[in-house]
Amino acid sequence: MVTAGLIFAALAAALHVYIFVLESLRWTAPRTRATFGTSQEEAVATKELAFNQGFYNLFLAIVTAIGVVAVAIDEVPVGAALTFAGTGSMLAAALVLLISSPGKARAAITQGVLPLLAVALLALGLAL
């Protein structure tokens, strides 16, 4: 179960790196605007905000990735703590999105399923 949890954590980290690319590097691109449902004017007006938000996603991915590597090299306590911190924060952010913007439920679920599975499987695996 620990291995499965780490795989889902790594997938969640990869997804959040992708979100970073969209928000911080490609925010005004037509395809990114279509993904987020924003107009050219909205994208330009919110570019700085999205740039900053993208880096939050990147930092969560980095913390999670370091945690996964730490567990993999048998530094389980610190690795688990980092993995839980990263994926738990991802999951919390998805819940905030779902609660604050029910119309964005699809995005919240996409953002939250992988970290949810990572947290659940890692916790079960470490408890056994």
Rank of each mutant, 00 (worst) to 15 (best):
I66C: 14
Q53A: 10
S39G: 14
L91K: 00
A81R: 11
A120Q: 07
A45L: 12
G54M: 09
F55D: 08
R33I: 00
A14T: 09
E23S: 06
V2K: 03
A29M: 12
A10E: 04
A92F: 15
I66Y: 15
A65I: 10
R33W: 05
A50R: 00
L25V: 14
A14R: 02
Q53D: 08
E23W: 08
L49P: 01
Q40G: 12
S39R: 12
A80L: 07
A93H: 10
V113G: 04
R106S: 13
E75D: 14
V113C: 00
V96A: 11
V17D: 10
L116F: 12
P30Q: 10
A80I: 09
A29H: 15
Y56K: 04
T35E: 15
T83I: 12
S89I: 09
A81H: 10
E42I: 01
F51M: 04
L6V: 06
L25P: 07
A93K: 12
S100F: 10
F84I: 09
L116R: 01
H16N: 06
T87G: 09
R31P: 09
W27V: 03
V44D: 15
I62M: 14
F59T: 08
A61E: 12
V17T: 08
L126T: 04
A34C: 03
R33A: 06
L97Q: 13
I62S: 14
G86R: 02
A118Y: 00
V76F: 12
G112E: 05
A13R: 02
I7E: 07
V63E: 13
P77C: 13
M90C: 13
G37L: 12
G112D: 01
A14V: 09
Y18F: 08
L49E: 12
A10D: 04
Q111Y: 05
A13I: 02
V21P: 00
L122Y: 03
V113T: 05
S101I: 03
E41N: 01
L22M: 10
F8A: 06
T32D: 10
T64H: 14
A120S: 03
P30I: 01
L114W: 05
Y18P: 03
V44G: 12
L114I: 02
A80G: 11
V76Y: 13
P102T: 07
A14E: 08
L97S: 07
A120E: 06
R26A: 14
L114H: 07
F36N: 10
A120G: 06
P115M: 06
L22A: 15
T83C: 15
G86Q: 11
V96T: 10
A118L: 02
G88I: 08
I19T: 03
L82W: 14
A94Y: 05
L97F: 07
G5N: 02
A45R: 15
M90W: 10
K47C: 01
V78E: 13
V113M: 12
L121T: 02
N57K: 08
M1K: 01
L128I: 03
A108T: 05
A65P: 08
T32G: 11
L98C: 05
A10Y: 07
I99M: 11
P102Q: 13
P102R: 09
A105E: 11
V63T: 10
S100M: 01
A108N: 06
L97A: 05
T32E: 14
S89C: 13
A70D: 15
P102C: 04
I19K: 04
I109P: 04
A85N: 12
L82I: 11
M90I: 09
I7S: 02
F20H: 02
A92C: 09
F20Q: 04
V68L: 11
K104H: 13
L122A: 05
Q53H: 14
